[in-house]
Simulated scan of single mutants.
Amino acid sequence: MAETKTKYNSKKIELDGHVFDSKAEARYYEELKLQQEQSKILFFRLQPRYELQESFKKCGKLHRKIEYVADFEIHHLDGSIETIDVKGFETTDFAIKRKLFEKKFPHKLTLLAFSQIDGGWIELDELKKARRLRKKTKAALKAEMSFN
């Protein structure tokens, strides 16, 4: 596994001839390979592309299309399709792409993160809630300690 840094300070990982943007993404790839071997999913694709808005011309200027490149696309046994993105946090750019994706595509978009504290793979929205709760609890304990 070769490693290089990305713009979000994660380390790029090369595994099975594929380059992943983070260790978490490479870990999820290994999880999907196992699920496919165990016939828990039909198959999965790496870095599927979704056109969110086509290119257009306005006032003589060409505006490029807007694409979203996800981490994985899973084809489940029941025929459903799920798009997976492994994230540490959600950028403002991604929040916009997420809304555009949700409007245009019928299949489920799941944002996952790996959290040791929370028991492994967890949806990003759930992780944010858990982190807020931990922060609130810590602040309450700190306030209680300073009260005594």
Rank of each mutant, 00 (worst) to 15 (best):
A70D: 09
V19T: 12
E73M: 14
I96G: 04
A140W: 13
L15W: 10
K57H: 09
A2P: 05
P48C: 01
L133I: 11
E54R: 15
F94M: 12
I13H: 00
L133H: 07
A139G: 03
K5E: 11
Q53N: 01
K87R: 14
K11C: 01
M1I: 05
Q53E: 13
K103P: 06
Y8M: 03
R98F: 07
E73Q: 14
H75A: 04
G88S: 08
F94C: 10
F105A: 08
C59F: 11
F114N: 09
S115L: 04
Y28A: 00
W121S: 01
K99Y: 15
T4L: 04
S55P: 15
L62I: 15
E3T: 08
L46E: 02
D16H: 11
L124S: 04
S22Q: 06
D93T: 15
I84Y: 08
L42Y: 03
Q35V: 00
K142M: 12
H63V: 04
R132P: 06
E123I: 02
E51I: 10
E31L: 05
K103R: 15
G60M: 01
R134L: 09
K5W: 09
I81V: 15
H18F: 08
E51K: 15
R131N: 12
I96K: 14
N148M: 04
E82D: 00
D125W: 09
P48S: 13
I122H: 03
R134S: 02
K33P: 01
R64Y: 11
P48A: 07
A140M: 02
T6E: 03
L77H: 12
F72A: 06
R132A: 04
Q47N: 10
E126H: 10
Q47V: 00
A130Y: 12
F101W: 12
L100T: 07
T110M: 01
F89R: 10
K11L: 11
K135N: 10
E126P: 04
T6Q: 14
Y50C: 05
A24K: 07
W121N: 02
S80F: 02
E67H: 14
R132H: 06
L34Y: 05
